[in-house]
Amino acid sequence: MTKIVMGIESSCDETGVGLVRLHEDGSVELLADAVASSVEQHARFGGVVPEVASRAHLEAMAPTVRRAFDSAGLKLSDVDAIAVTAGPGLAGALLVGVAAAKAYAAALEVPLYGVNHLAGHVAVDTLEHGPLPTPCLALLVSGGHTQLLRVDDIAGKITELGSTVDDAAGEAYDKVARLLGLPYPGGPPIDKAAADGDPAAIAFPRGMTGPRDAKYDFSFSGLKTAVARWVETTERRGETVPVDDVCASFQEAVADVLTAKAVAAAKETGIDTLVISGGVAANSRLSGLARERCAAAGVQLRIPRPRLCTDNGAMIAALGAHVVAAGVPRSKLDFSAAPGLPVSTVTV
């Protein structure tokens, strides 16, 4: 018998509702992926405003659920299990999804699973590329996270090998975009400008790559400051800032560090599959360089399509389906949203 799993995501600025079908052989099929984003409401603030995001989640939740079911041609009563992002994320934003999910589970009399958002970013790849070989490595890069993970069991055993010690990679993009006068979010405009620039024009620093630095940790704060310093120095000399070159050189520094550390982890652990996910995974230089370096190292690279890389409900539904298939006990209905949930806790 197949099972329909609904996934609800509200950890940041996207209200996501996904529906998947868990087949008897354990494969998971995407049925619907409805997302309402409040990104435009945050643009003039240059970053996500938690209260604005939380208000938007409350308004968007029921309509987004409706859209997901309509697009799948299903009724709410068809659902067999519900998964919801329990954390990590913004406290007020998470709470909206968790409260809604508990009520849906109670009303529909189906089990509820509070799950880890980061694990969802990895699980979503099974919707596109089939079952994950285990163990595998995962590099998560977005405005909120930069993490290198070892995944032994998507439904239960995930270990963090390293993470950023300061800014997330996507955050660095937003900050650099702002100082160059480019729009928020910074990823797409920088990627576009970089296409016309020279990635070797400026030698920006590679953070956390010294011999005494933690091997798999990342740092992007120094890079952002170096870009600011370079731009200011150029302006003081009365010269025009070559935005394309700055973008290309900045992007090269980010992609270089991310891919070098991920491939080094693959070599050291002997794990031959790398999943790259999260909003920044869509970046053309990151995916291009990852492809080159993985091919050279004999590592199989999996990157879900951009729509699945960004925050959405399908990733939570996919993870929920794997959790159901693994027979993990359901969550109690009094669990709390957990803004700092560690990636090692896949279900609460």
Partner: peptide
């Protein structure tokens, strides 16, 4: 206060929709 308030509204809306 906003955060607590939304718990009630999200719960009520979802119950109404599902029931």
């Amino acid at each position: 206060p906003f955060t607590g308030l939304r718990a009630g509204l999200a719960t009520a809306a979802s119950l109404g929709q599902a029931l």
